[in-house]
Write a protein that binds this DNA or RNA. Sequence first.
DNA 1: GCGCAGGGGGTCG
DNA 2: CGACCCCCTGCG
Length: 287
Amino acid sequence: MEEQRYILKNCNSFEPVHIFDCGQCFRWNREEDGSYTGIFKNNVLNVKKENEDIIFEGVCDGDIEEVCKEYFDLNTDYEEIKAKLSNIDEYLKNSIEYGKGIRILNQDLWETIISFIISANNNIPRIKGIIERKSKKYGNKIIYKGKNYYTFPDMNSLGKASVEDLRALGLGFRDKRIYETTRMFLDKEITLEELENEKDTDTLREKLITLSGVGGKVADCIMLFSLKKFDVFPIDVWVRRVMNELYIKEDDENKVSKTLIQNLAKEKYNDLAGLAQQYLFYWKRDA
DNA sequence: GCGCAGGGGGTCG
DNA sequence: CGACCCCCTGCG
């Protein structure tokens, strides 16, 4: 594939570090010059901010401008979203200032499902390691600037792995979950298309939860990070902590019920809850 | 330096 | 509610 280049100008809401470090993705790595290189679908891209320009370079499956517009959600007006959220309260206003360049990537559904099943009771360095090993073994190689990159394995490739094969990648107890979920798709008990076409958030969540290894939190991440459901509010330890500290003020944050937090998020942030979650998460975890 | 607990972006039974 | 694989990290 031929190398391409695309430059995005005058974009106020685009900071590579915010985008790649706000917890939505696992396959972007920082280079020595401060740029980021990552792989998604059959594209390998390097993203660099120079002055106010965003420079995208790499090998793409298609036209780089179209690929970037889709993946980096460039048709969504984040200035408008930030303005709306900033009006809600000072906390949100501050966290948005802190993570002003966050954007929600439009990630591949299959990759997101598998990646977030792996994320359960796990830490980021290990999650990244597992995904890299898995891609190297079951994905396709793409060479960019003399380095090898491996695509995220599709369900047919991953379907060739036994539970033992998966365990060997360091998946731990998640091996069986990945195996079973892959089987469910291969056996057409459920399809990516029906998930992509499901408009109703609650129905979609119910369908996702039928997958092995997908509970409420993982389902919400899948919906927010690959199905553009900006109204969902994934609750992990950090979000629970920040919501308790800001609004609920219970002594023991673990006593705060998920339902209470969900209702609060719905009431305060409504259809932008997912975005609010990202700004708060990034701000709190970094602080 | 190295060895050893502690705990991690939850889910399941 | 407790167990769960396995590293990754941090302290001794």
